[in-house]
Amino acid sequence: MDQLQIKDLEIFAYHGLFPSEKELGQKFVISASLSYDMTKAATELDLTASVHYGELCQQWTTWFQESTEDLIETVAYKLVERTFETYPLVQEIELELKKPWAPVHLPLDTCSVTIRRRKQRAFIALGSNMGDKQANLEQAIDKLQARGIHILKESSVLTTEPWGGVDQDSFANQVIEVETWLPASVLLETLLAIESELGRVREVHWGPRLIDLDLLFVEDQVIYTDDLILPHPYITERLFVLEPLAEIAPHFIHPILKQPIRYLVDQLEQGNA
């Protein structure tokens, strides 16, 4: 993908763990690469399809100086976050933040941190069977958007019978496709935080829930850790997930089974017949 390169932008600011760093300040140096499609800007002279690097450098300077942080990792992360928020056309950012005057007291040219993030698409299943179910789904989506997660598609809301053998009310189920630069593990943490904010209490396994947010896919990533399994391990067993997923992404290929979602729906329906 096309890239805009900015190298060695110098900014004087007051970040650091030590009191002297916050009192006296020091020089920081930013280098970054922003990836986006430049075709429209280049061929049609469309400035809205471009990033004004002069304005961006001024914005970085303003953002950099408006607060004081202990860690340069925090500063770099916030710069990446604000840049994605301000320039939706940017698909990937690699940003290096150098601290040439770091208080190391040894021969040192500079120390730096580099953060690399790219936008990716993910699918999230939403469910609720307590209170105002429709409102619960809408609140969850609002909270995702408030965290900078862009909603690309929303399926219809389906009314489905509970799954898992626990006697309870029917569910309102939905699947959405989102775009986010958050890594899969952080996206999962975000979903759990939203569940908590909306009042979900985990008392009965597969039991009633005010809101349920399941991370189904993050592009074609396959992850197996104690905290996260991708793709979601129960996708192929749940019509209430597959049907709304097929509505918005029938041709998405399951990265392990190598089959499109529409085919997985057919398989499960035939098996239940």
Score class of each variant (00 low, 15 high):
D109E: 14
D214M: 09
V241E: 04
E55Q: 13
C111G: 04
G199H: 10
F252H: 12
S33A: 14
K78I: 02
E73D: 08
L245V: 01
A184S: 15
K119L: 12
E138P: 00
A135K: 15
L228H: 11
S67G: 05
G54Q: 11
L182V: 03
E85R: 15
A273L: 14
E195C: 06
Q59I: 03
T62C: 02
V29Q: 10
L4A: 11
Y224E: 15
Y263E: 15
Q267V: 12
Q65V: 02
V157M: 07
A42H: 11
L191D: 07
L187R: 10
R200C: 08
F28D: 10
I11H: 03
T61Q: 14
T62R: 14
Q59N: 12
S155A: 02
V104K: 08
I176S: 07
E219I: 01
D109H: 11
L158I: 10
L95W: 03
T62L: 13
E269G: 00
L9G: 01
L213I: 07
E189C: 13
E55P: 00
D220R: 11
E73H: 03
Q267A: 10
V75G: 02
R118C: 10
E81H: 09
E247G: 05
L4K: 07
S20G: 09
S155I: 01
V241A: 05
Q139M: 12
R116P: 00
P250K: 02
V201Y: 09
V265F: 02
E154D: 04
L242R: 04
G199F: 09
P103W: 04
V265I: 09
E203K: 15
I6F: 02
L182Q: 12
R262S: 12
G165C: 08
P255R: 06
I149M: 06
L213S: 06
P103K: 05
Q3C: 13
E85W: 08
L268Y: 05
K98R: 15
W163V: 14
S20M: 09
W63L: 06
S170D: 14
E55C: 03
E154Y: 04
L245S: 01
F171S: 10
S170F: 07
S155D: 01
Q267K: 13
Q270W: 00
A273M: 10
L187T: 08
K153H: 14
R116G: 00
I6Y: 06
R209L: 09
S128I: 05
L216A: 07
I30A: 03
C57L: 06
L182F: 00
T190D: 00
R118T: 11
I261C: 02
Q120A: 14
Y53A: 01
V29I: 15
S196D: 13
V201W: 07
R117Y: 02
S112V: 03
L228R: 13
Q26W: 00
L192W: 06
I30Q: 06
P255W: 09
K133P: 04
A184F: 05
H15M: 07
C111H: 01
L245T: 01
L95C: 03
Y234C: 10
E69R: 15
E197H: 05
